[in-house]
Simulated assay, not measured.
Amino acid sequence: MGTRAETMEFLVDQLSGLPNIRSKKMFGEYALYCDEKVVAFVCDDELFIKPTDAGREYIGEPEEAPAYPGSKMYFRVSGDRWEDREWLTGLIDTTAAVLPVPKPKKPKAAKPQK
């Protein structure tokens, strides 16, 4: 089915209180970034948060599910929790705080001249 653009617009708006929130379309679905760290995926209009001990403590007893067939388990956050801007922002902020900074990408090699 794929995630609708409206879903991502809503989530990014809900998280607008955090600096450096953005989404990126990937393979028909979306990755959600906070401070250049991938903190979640949105697949088939469902939100899947990267699992961390801090996130587990914040949520309490998270529902765990694969974001896509063959993926590892993530914390699935239901749509009714999306309405609570403060709670959702807190979860994303808590998750981003404990994730490692991504390694810098290597520059692409120059293509040989013909």
Rank of each mutant, 00 (worst) to 15 (best):
G28N: 05
E29W: 00
E29R: 08
Y30L: 10
A31K: 14
A31L: 15
A31D: 13
L32M: 13
Y33W: 09
D35K: 15
D35M: 11
E36K: 14
E36P: 00
E36Y: 10
E36N: 14
K37Y: 04
V38P: 00
A40K: 04
F41M: 07
V42Q: 06
D44Q: 11
D45T: 08
L47F: 15
F48K: 02
I49L: 15
I49N: 00
K50N: 02
K50I: 04
P51L: 15
P51K: 15
T52K: 04
D53H: 09
A54V: 12
A54G: 06
G55T: 05
E57K: 15
G60C: 07
E61A: 14
A65D: 14
A65G: 09
A65L: 14
P66V: 02
P66G: 01
P66F: 05
P66M: 04
G70Y: 05
K72F: 12
K72I: 11
F75E: 00
F75N: 06
S78M: 11
G79N: 12
G79L: 12
G79P: 00
D80C: 08
D80N: 13
R81D: 02
R81E: 04
E83H: 13
E83V: 13
D84A: 09
E86W: 02
E86R: 14
L88E: 01
T89D: 00
L91D: 03
L91Y: 01
L91I: 01
T94I: 08
T95R: 08
V98S: 09
P100Q: 04
V101I: 10
P102T: 08
P104V: 10
K106H: 07
K106G: 00
K106W: 00
K106C: 03
P107F: 09
P107I: 08
A109I: 04
A109E: 14
A109R: 15
K111E: 13
P112V: 13
